[in-house]
């Protein structure tokens, strides 16, 4: 068994930039991101693949960073929530989540944003059911998911170039 302090080193593309990082070789991508790269935007809720809170994109696919070895990410493209906003401007999904209150405690939010981003990259006009299916691996205890769906739909519309605004009942309820 190698001693804990014998670190392995890999190079990867992280949020669009080349990065080298050294870490204990048994560490998962979750631990490497949070502890060795200081990117604490990626959260964790179980470390067993049972909640989706730790989702990040590896090669543009949302995966559970708690079950990906850091070593398996050599040469891969990793994207975390910290890489979503560009040039000081929120990604439309981030903007819509903030606008509608789709982030309550905000703990599951980074994973939802990345999973939703992967969905919109493949499907510019997802139905409500497709959104539910795509986000069925992410648990949220605060929102009941509804504001999350509405935020994804709002962001999708804006990303298609539509001047979409939230419905009145989304923000104020039914009359």
């Amino acid at each position: 068994m190698p001693p804990l302090d014998a670190k392995a080193k890999i190079a990867l593309e992280l949020n669009g930039e080349p990065v080298e990082v050294a870490f204990a070789p048994h560490k998962t991508l979750l631990e490497v991101l949070r502890e060795d790269l200081g990117l604490t935007g990626t959260k964790h809720g179980c470390e067993l693949g049972e909640c989706g809170t730790c989702a990040v994109l590896v090669d543009a696919r949302p995966v559970l960073s708690c079950l990906v070895l850091g070593l398996a990410c050599a040469g891969r493209r990793v994207k975390t929530v910290e890489g979503m906003a560009e040039g000081g401007r929120l990604h439309p999904l981030q903007d819509a989540f903030a606008e509608l209150g789709a982030a309550q405690c905000g703990y599951c939010t980074p994973a939802f944003l990345l999973a939703a981003g992967a969905l919109l990259a493949e499907n510019r006009r997802p139905t409500r059911d497709q959104i539910k299916q795509a986000l069925a691996g992410n648990l949220c205890r605060c929102t009941g998911y509804i504001k999350i769906y509405e935020a994804v739909e709002l962001a999708a519309a804006r990303m298609r170039g539509e001047k979409a605004q939230p419905a009145r009942e989304t923000l104020y309820g039914y009359p």
């Binding site: 068994m1 190698p2 804990l4 204990a24 070789p25 048994h26 560490k27 998962t28 631990e31 964790h44 179980c46 470390e47 067993l48 070895l69 070593l71 398996a72």
Partner: peptide
């Protein structure tokens, strides 16, 4: 946090 034990990872 629940963590993996130490082990050697090989990628043939």
């Amino acid at each position: 946090m629940l963590r993996l034990p130490s082990f050697t990872y090989l990628q043939p």
